[in-house]
Design a protein around this nucleic acid. Structure first.
Lengths: 336, 336
DNA sequence: CTGAAAGCGCTAACAT
DNA sequence: ATGTTAGCGCTTTCAG
């Protein structure tokens, strides 16, 4: 049995009494950057320690109108990339004295409610972390005017929320260039779920890149979920129904999970290395000897810094930033 | 540029005025389960909508002494298992009207500060999610008496914080039984980092199980980090320095990440299938065709439910629960 | 540098 | 069922 040893609550009043100063002097002691005589400070700190006093940040927030809480909205956890982003984001927030209030919107239609609740909790901002924004987001965004709304690693057509994203077009273009350089002639693109806020730019850059180099995008594959196993099934289907000589020799996958699935399918089919594959996100797992996935690394820390900055000051503008290709083995065509 | 369209703050006073009722009636309207006449309710709701009023939950918390915030302490994000746990935990909390305040303690020595800060924020409890608790945790735990402290998926010798964990001993025992049943004769255990709060039970159950069946644990491997690639290196080393006929034929890995590393090493070494391998955690990835990892699935949802319950009521006792083996292919000895 | 008044926005407890 | 009193614990004026 766990007991809640509710200690007698100690407030600034008691500390003030013990230290022989006023309540307001106690407050100042615990507010960095407030003028206070060294003597008073020591006396207060001493009394506080003796009483086990800690300022109630909730009460402070009510006064200052700042909670230091940032709602972080995530819609898919079980994804290595999201994990990395969440790791870095929560860390960056903490470094700036902010805290991440995690909002899990796996349950699609509750987004609006959850974000509204966060708003009522007086969070200082909302960051949508690679979340696939659904329809009601429009109304949501217009309801929340009090605090900054930021979308990182996702696009959004609306003018309202601040968008901070990878330059998907440039990425697609670079990948087309890489693949053509490897000698590929037939190209495929493997997309994930298509929602309201899409990542078409990634494909467009790829396609434009191919065109510019005299090639076409001949095959479009799709999976309704960024799921490795589903992607594997889809690609296995492609391999099974397409005679070897008709197959593409290069494929750009919308993210690494899909790319893994493609590689799995090729391994199972015994044709590993016959098709160049490039992923996106550069999750740590890609370095695995079993995959050696070539991937595009988004400018994670730069974008996260911007997102945090946007929470702190209101002077961040919509931005797309280039990432960079991480070359390993999977983009090479070894066997044919 | 993002503008903070600071709307004129609307409080319950304004709503009360417009609705022609008192402030407290407004409060009641927004507190589920409080008696209120339908007429008044409608009038208030109407006025509230008109004014765009939303109750300030912060102020409410100050009064009620409940924030509905639960600090969730995580020390390693980039781990599929943690991700799953965090996903389920945050979801379970939400379902119960609670919210997860994410505390990222990647930076080891800041645990105490961060948890203390959470305490000052008046969180209603703290959940350590599979976090490796370091030394100063002892003092930490004794400092926080106001709210329940729970450790899930980790052991802890201290009597104070509530521990909710998998029955690691039983798991180890079951795995020994499985491996012996597969015809293995020589056994290894591959452990991860050894900290203050260890998972020795997992190994002990394994070892006792082997003994009971007439076998011994002959090889102990270790990696200082639950990292697939590091584990791969370590196991590659083992394979390279141990002649084939002297090698173990079964290995139990402390978690799936390590097990993946072992499989990677075997694949690279061309001896895939020669050694039975069993992991722990049953991360989704284990189902990958490239691994087909047999693993032990901890009773995740049961433990998480208990943790949430512990936040809600103070009647949860220290518990260990059995999980179950998930049989795929990796525990079979195919080639020798 | 320190003290006092007023108030952040809401709700518990009691009264009506 | 509704209104009242008193406060949650802190901070922001602004005097002294």
């Amino acid at each position: 049995m766990k007991k809640n040893t509710s200690q007698p609550k100690v407030t600034s009043v008691e500390v003030a009494a013990l230290a022989g100063v006023s309540r307001w002097t106690v407050s100042r002691t615990f507010t960095p950057g407030k003028p206070i005589s060294e003597e008073a400070r020591v006396r207060v700190l001493d009394a506080a320690k003796q009483l086990g006093y800690k300022p109630n940040l909730l009460a402070r927030s009510l006064s200052t109108q700042k909670t230091g809480l940032i709602a972080v909205v995530v819609d898919t956890f079980q994804n290595y990339n999201v994990m990395k982003l969440l790791d870095q984001l929560s860390f960056a927030l903490q470094k700036n004295g902010l805290r991440a209030l995690l909002i899990n919107v796996a349950d699609e239609d509750s987004v609006a409610d959850l974000v509204e609740h966060a708003d009522q909790l007086q969070t200082d901002g909302v960051i949508f972390l690679g979340a696939t924004l659904t329809g009601d987001f429009v109304s949501l965004a217009s309801n929340i005017k009090r605090i900054p709304l930021v979308i990182v690693f996702r696009d959004c057509d609306l003018p309202e929320p601040l968008v901070l994203n990878t330059d998907d077009y440039a990425a697609g273009f670079d990948i087309a260039t890489l693949l053509v350089g490897e000698g590929a002639k037939q190209f495929a693109y493997f997309s994930g779920p298509t929602g309201m806020t899409t990542r078409v730019n990634r494909r467009e850059g790829y396609e434009d890149g191919l065109h510019q180099l005299g090639f076409d995008l001949s095959v479009l594959l799709n999976v309704t979920n960024y799921d490795q196993f589903m992607a594997c099934d889809v690609f296995a289907g492609y391999l099974n129904t397409t005679p070897k000589h008709e197959r593409v020799d290069a494929i750009f996958c919308e993210n690494d999970a899909v790319a893994f699935g493609v590689i799995d399918a090729m391994r199972a089919h015994g044709c590993l290395g016959s098709i160049a594959v490039v992923g996106f996100d550069d999750i740590a797992y890609g370095a695995s000897p079993s995959y050696q996935l070539t991937s595009y690394a988004p400018p994670v820390s730069a974008l996260i810094d911007l997102a945090v900055q946007a929470m702190l000051r209101n002077d961040v503008a919509r931005t797309v930033l280039k990432g960079q290709l991480v070359l390993r083995e999977s983009h090479k065509i070894i066997a044919r």
